[in-house]
């Protein structure tokens, strides 16, 4: 395994788009070559070395390459976009679109991540240890097909539109979410261990959502069918008792979506 260490050196007055930062692009390149790769700042294309110091060479292949970003980069977007293998470790917070369209490999963000992490991701894994904002694993505007494979794990909270249009794969939120978690999903699994504000599973036509905490405002188009305990989805365990709902009957698709809601935290439902 070859490690390439990028240390942010500033110049982030305007945000930077760095989709070039993937193990695929770094593989087979020297530190020098990597520094010459171009990133976008506004309409300018500038060398990566203007923003990061580069240490270490890429491995022989993507799988063989680890990129370590040693610092905070909330204003750098699109790290790991469409990567197919290898590893990216961000030791601080990441900007928008981290791991967007990702196909394989692993991304770890030790801090927070901005919106659109893992948009339309197809494979691999993203682990965000802090919080994130909107559209985790979501579909692009106008599309009904979001993330279709792989796994996103958020240890902290997410805000809106988690997993919008999810088709496959898993999203696990350790903390809480706000609005439209699992909007219009048709497959896959979303587990929220904390609370949700409203509109969980709205317009869902398939797939599974589990909410371990309390849902402040329940989505009206769901019907309770059962109570189940100690849910298990492969390696993902959700202990405790859950009310099982099907829906969303607001959408004329026969309510093939499944929504589990913790019994203890949602007595009024």
């Amino acid at each position: 395994m070859a490690d390439v260490i990028l240390k942010p050196i500033g110049n982030f007055d305007l945000t930077v788009e760095a989709e070039v930062v993937t193990p695929d692009n770094f593989a087979g390149k020297s530190a020098d070559d990597i520094g010459k790769l171009l990133v976008w700042q506004g309409p300018e294309e500038l060398p990566l070395a203007d923003f990061f110091s580069v240490e270490g060479n890429g491995g022989s292949s993507a799988e063989d390459t680890t990129i370590i970003i040693d610092g905070e980069i909330p204003r750098v977007k699109r790290i790991g976009q469409e990567m197919t293998g290898g590893k990216v470790l961000i030791k601080g917070s990441a900007g928008m679109h981290v791991g967007s369209g990702m196909l394989g490999g692993e991304i770890i963000v030790e801090g927070d991540a901005e919106s659109w992490a893992g948009m339309e991701m197809k494979g691999g894994s993203i682990h965000i240890k802090g919080d994130t904002k909107d559209h985790v694993g979501c579909a692009y505007r106008g599309s009904w097909k979001g993330m279709s494979g792989g796994r996103i794990t958020i240890d902290g909270n997410a805000v809106s539109q988690v997993g919008g249009g999810l088709v496959g794969g898993e999203i696990i939120i350790g903390g809480s979410v706000k609005h439209f978690c699992g909007i219009r999903i048709s497959g896959g699994l979303i587990v929220v261990k904390g609370n949700a504000v409203r509109t969980v599973g709205a317009e869902m036509t398939g797939g599974t959502i589990v909410v371990g905490g309390c849902i402040e405002r329940f989505t009206p188009g769901f019907e309770m069918v059962d109570v189940e305990s100690d849910l298990k989805f492969n390696d993902i365990e959700c202990p405790g008792e859950y009310k099982k709902f099907t829906g969303d009957y607001a959408i004329p698709q026969k309510g093939k979506g499944t929504l589990y809601v913790s019994c203890n935290n949602n007595e009024c439902l």
Binding site: R198, T199, A202, R217, T219, P220, G221, D248, Y249, A250, I251, P252
Partner: peptide, 11 residues
Amino acid sequence: ELLSAMFTILN
């Protein structure tokens, strides 16, 4: 929620 409930009623 209001629209969603009305939609559910419609269905």
